[in-house]
Amino acid sequence: MDGMFELYLDGSIEPDDIPHTSDPVYILGKKYNALQELETIRQDILSKIWFTYRKNFVPIGGDDGLTTDKGWGCMLRCGQMVLAQALVTLHLGRDWIWEPETKDSTYLKILSKFVDKRQAPFSIHQIAMMGVSENKDVGQWFGPNTVAQVLKKLVKYDDWSSIAIHIALDNALIISDIRELCLSQEDEGCVSMKCGSGGWKPLLLIVPLRLGLQEINPIYASGLKKCFKFKQSLGVIGGKPNLALYFIGYVGDEVIYLDPHTTQKSGSVENKETEEEIELDSSYHCKYASRINILSMDPSVAVCFFCSTEAEFNDLCHAIKKDLIEPEKQPLFEVTYEKPKQWKPTLDDAVEAADFELSGEYDSEHEFEIL
Rank of each mutant, 00 (worst) to 15 (best):
241 P>S: 11
230 F>K: 06
6 E>D: 12
188 E>C: 12
153 K>H: 13
205 L>A: 02
306 F>S: 03
135 N>K: 14
39 E>K: 08
185 Q>C: 08
79 G>E: 01
205 L>I: 11
120 A>D: 00
85 Q>C: 10
249 G>D: 09
216 I>F: 06
337 Y>I: 12
328 E>P: 04
40 T>I: 14
95 D>C: 09
117 K>N: 03
140 Q>H: 14
181 L>F: 07
338 E>W: 07
166 H>A: 13
295 L>A: 02
163 I>G: 07
190 C>G: 08
317 C>V: 15
140 Q>R: 14
22 S>N: 08
283 S>C: 10
170 D>N: 10
151 L>S: 10
189 G>T: 13
113 K>M: 13
236 V>T: 08
79 G>W: 00
107 Y>Q: 07
310 E>L: 04
329 K>W: 08
178 I>A: 02
365 E>G: 14
6 E>G: 02
254 E>H: 09
243 L>I: 02
129 M>F: 06
295 L>N: 07
137 D>V: 14
175 I>E: 14
368 F>L: 15
350 A>P: 12
266 S>E: 05
53 Y>S: 07
109 K>M: 09
124 I>W: 05
121 P>A: 03
14 E>C: 05
108 L>Q: 07
340 P>G: 03
135 N>R: 13
336 T>M: 15
92 L>I: 06
167 I>C: 07
114 F>Y: 10
330 Q>C: 14
54 R>D: 15
198 G>A: 00
167 I>W: 06
260 P>R: 00
273 E>S: 09
215 E>R: 02
182 C>R: 01
305 F>T: 10
160 W>A: 04
144 P>L: 04
311 A>K: 00
187 D>S: 01
81 M>C: 03
135 N>L: 10
248 I>D: 00
186 E>A: 10
24 P>T: 09
310 E>D: 15
303 V>M: 06
35 L>G: 05
261 H>C: 04
160 W>K: 02
279 E>N: 14
59 P>Y: 04
360 G>L: 11
102 T>C: 13
266 S>R: 00
207 V>Y: 02
357 E>L: 14
277 E>K: 00
262 T>W: 04
349 D>M: 14
311 A>L: 08
308 S>H: 09
47 S>H: 09
170 D>P: 05
256 I>G: 02
95 D>A: 10
116 D>E: 01
341 K>N: 11
137 D>G: 15
200 W>E: 03
306 F>E: 04
1 M>R: 11
351 V>R: 14
297 M>Q: 02
8 Y>C: 14
84 A>D: 09
313 F>S: 09
198 G>Q: 00
145 N>G: 15
27 I>H: 05
345 P>W: 03
262 T>F: 06
203 L>F: 01
246 Y>C: 08
121 P>R: 00
275 E>P: 11
176 S>Y: 05
162 S>Q: 11
308 S>E: 14
92 L>C: 07
112 S>G: 09
115 V>I: 13
355 D>A: 05
209 L>N: 03
90 L>H: 15
331 P>W: 01
286 C>K: 00
304 C>T: 12
237 I>K: 01
171 N>T: 08
46 L>W: 06
3 G>W: 13
310 E>P: 05
76 L>F: 01
133 S>I: 14
121 P>K: 01
79 G>Q: 01
303 V>W: 05
170 D>F: 08
49 I>D: 09
90 L>W: 04
334 E>G: 11
281 D>K: 06
312 E>S: 04
356 F>V: 12
222 S>I: 12
307 C>F: 02
